[in-house]
């Protein structure tokens, strides 16, 4: 019975968040189409407002592929829905007689489902793109170009938070999807932790939670970059790490954030 309540919550969380994901994918598709159209008309003189907007969005001659756009924006998407989850769902479920424990387990499972679904969608989009590239005269930019190392520290932090360059969905199916899922879930849990900190403790501790969570995200990215031998920010003293240990540490960071969320929600007062 108790298990089934958590599963019901997980199912609801998954389906609601996948509806949001479809909205996000739709917006990304519009951006992609505008960018692709823009790359075709780059040489045409922009003499009206719409053309100017299209050209400003598509400031490259080569547009990014749809899969690249989703790949690099999904971290932020997961982060944002994690924050929303803390506010909307907690009150909804408890007011419908669900315990905080079942909410926590269900929310974690449902959201992990979303984190698995997104790379599968990207992989499918990649397959469609591969077919289209063969039959259409379209050329997409190399997906690694937007993750060229930034020299400034703020730029590096943003880059490390936004892009996970160690994940390659083009090569290995399973490894890419597992890595992507762990990474996306990490961003979700990070947003969830910030949201819960604001909900439970108010704005002061809520604000404190932001740099703490950013630090955890940076460590997570750094560990994975070290393991996959990608340029790091030298935040950690170690410069090499076996991949299984990196997986373990990355999962530990997620586990730490999940434990904090559970502790903060265990007796949390539901706002009316």
């Amino acid at each position: 019975m108790q298990k089934s309540i958590s599963m019901r919550v997980a199912k609801d969380m998954f389906s609601t968040q996948m509806i949001w994901a479809s909205g996000y994918l739709f917006v990304m598709l519009i951006i992609f189409l505008v960018k692709t159209v823009g790359s075709f008309i780059n040489d045409i003189e922009a003499n009206n407002f719409i053309m100017k907007i299209i050209k400003s969005i598509a400031n490259d001659r080569e547009a990014d592929s749809f899969s690249t756009l989703i790949f690099y924006s999904s971290n932020i998407f997961m982060f944002v829905i994690g924050i929303i989850a803390a506010y909307g769902f907690l009150q909804y479920f408890v007011s419908n007689g669900v315990t905080r424990k079942h909410y926590f387990v269900g929310a974690a499972l449902g959201s992990f489902g979303v984190a698995i679904a997104i790379p599968i969608i990207i992989k499918l989009v990649l397959l469609v793109e591969a077919i289209l590239l063969k039959i259409l005269p379209v050329q997409f930019a190399d997906s690694v170009k937007i993750v060229q190392p930034d020299n400034e520290i703020v730029g590096q932090i943003i880059q490390n938070i936004l892009f996970s360059s160690y994940i390659d969905l083009n090569s290995s199916w399973l490894v890419g999807i597992v890595l992507f899922s762990i990474n996306a879930f990490c961003y979700y849990v990070a947003g969830w932790l910030i949201g819960i900190s604001f909900y439970h403790f108010g704005s002061v501790i809520g604000l404190v939670s932001i740099p703490v969570v950013i630090a955890l995200l940076l460590i997570h990215a750094e560990i994975m970059n070290i393991a996959f031998d990608i340029q790091t920010m030298n935040l950690l003293v170690i410069h090499a790490m076996p991949i299984p240990i990196a997986y373990l540490l990355a999962i530990s960071i997620i586990a730490i954030m999940l434990i904090l969320i559970r502790l903060f929600t265990k007796k949390v007062v539901i706002k009316l």
Partner: peptide, 14 residues
């Protein structure tokens, strides 16, 4: 409090 069996039996309309 945090008792699944009881929480399902209580509805709070506000």
């Amino acid at each position: 409090f945090e008792n699944a069996e009881i929480m399902q039996q209580v509805v709070f309309a506000y």
